[in-house]
């Protein structure tokens, strides 16, 4: 299955580009899906270590607000993406130093607590953040090029797609490296790692910082695409959404998050368009059905379709 992953990725990318050309509004939706996919790769990293962050929306929101705050001063999409990644990475390091001491529910709930504190701050510091009104992000130059709106949207879509590929590739390499193997060791038998002289906390911390950076990048792209950021990005249901996407897509491969994110956005739009007042019911049912009848998520389904069982 791993062999097919790059080919599948190319097919998926081609499908996305076709869809984006055919319908301008899909370009928007797919850019958001790619952004969320990138953030969910971060969730995937931690899931590899058996840890569920139920507060990762913190980093997505942080990345988005970095863009919103710095855009007037640092007016370039590429610079802002870098700033969001670095900023989220530093925040991830600070919080990670604390939360990586904990496992399972404590890890999940501490992350949740951090994101809720951040959410409250976004509301409380009204005079800086405009609270739930949010902050507008204007069309900005990309790599020094001033662009009109359509070209800008295409650029962000392109950047998101390129980043998705880069992130997917790097994380694939990382997961098969000794560091990645050690990460999986935390899930199964953490104590053994330490007997072997591998500092489990250090391994988890580095994965945590990486996942925070991915969240920051995803958030930055979301901010550049929807061009308006609000505290809702940090609310706990947004974190739940990220974990939702991870499981919907399947935790087996790095393609899973992107499959999951695209499916999530499309199902939500489809549900909202058909049953505007019961979209949660539909989204929840889809997730339940996938979990109960398609373990391994969409990626697992794809794997079975291709006739190869193993997804690891």
């Amino acid at each position: 299955m791993r062999r097919y992953e790059p080919i599948l990725a190319l097919v998926l990318a081609a499908a996305m580009i076709t869809a984006a050309i055919m319908a301008p509004w899909l370009r928007f939706v797919l850019t958001i899906a790619l952004a969320k996919g990138i953030a969910v790769v971060g969730i995937l990293l931690l899931l590899r270590a058996g840890q569920v962050s139920f507060g990762h929306a913190l980093y997505v929101a942080f990345g988005a607000y970095v863009v919103a705050f710095l855009a007037p001063r640092l007016n370039d999409a590429v610079l802002l993406l870098a700033a969001a990644a670095v900023g989220a990475g530093i925040l991830g390091l600070l919080i990670g130093l604390f939360v990586t001491r904990y496992r399972q529910i404590f890890f999940g709930m501490l992350n949740l607590a951090m994101s809720m504190v951040f959410y409250s701050l976004l509301e409380k510091l009204y005079h800086i953040t405009h609270g739930s009104d949010g902050i507008r992000v204007e069309v900005m130059p990309v790599a020094g090029q001033a662009l009109d709106r359509v070209a800008y949207e295409w650029s962000i879509f392109g950047i998101a797609l390129a980043l998705a590929f880069t992130v997917g590739l790097l994380v694939r390499l990382y997961l098969s490296s000794p560091m990645g193997e050690a990460l999986a060791g935390i899930k199964t038998r953490e104590t053994r790692l330490e007997f072997m002289g591998v500092p489990a906390r250090g391994v988890l911390l580095s994965a945590y910082v990486m996942s925070a950076m991915l969240g920051g990048i995803g958030g930055a792209i979301i901010a550049m695409t929807s061009r308006h950021v609000t505290p809702l990005l940090a609310y706990w249901t947004s974190s739940g959404e990220l974990v939702f996407i991870a499981i919907l897509g399947g935790a087996g491969g790095v393609l899973g998050p992107f499959l999951g994110a695209a499916a999530f956005e499309l199902v939500r739009i489809y549900a909202a368009a058909s049953f505007a007042d019961a979209w949660q019911l539909i989204l929840g049912s889809v997730l339940l059905l996938v979990i109960l009848f398609a373990p391994g998520g969409l990626w697992g389904m794809a794997a079975r379709l291709l006739g190869k069982g193993g997804t690891r």
Partner: peptide, 22 residues
């Protein structure tokens, strides 16, 4: 045609575009 505001800005902005463009 009605659209729910509750899911948040990124969804709403997408729906606005869908309604106008599609």
């Amino acid at each position: 045609t009605f659209v729910d505001e509750a899911p948040g800005t990124d969804h709403l902005v997408g729906e606005f575009r869908r309604l106008v463009q599609s």
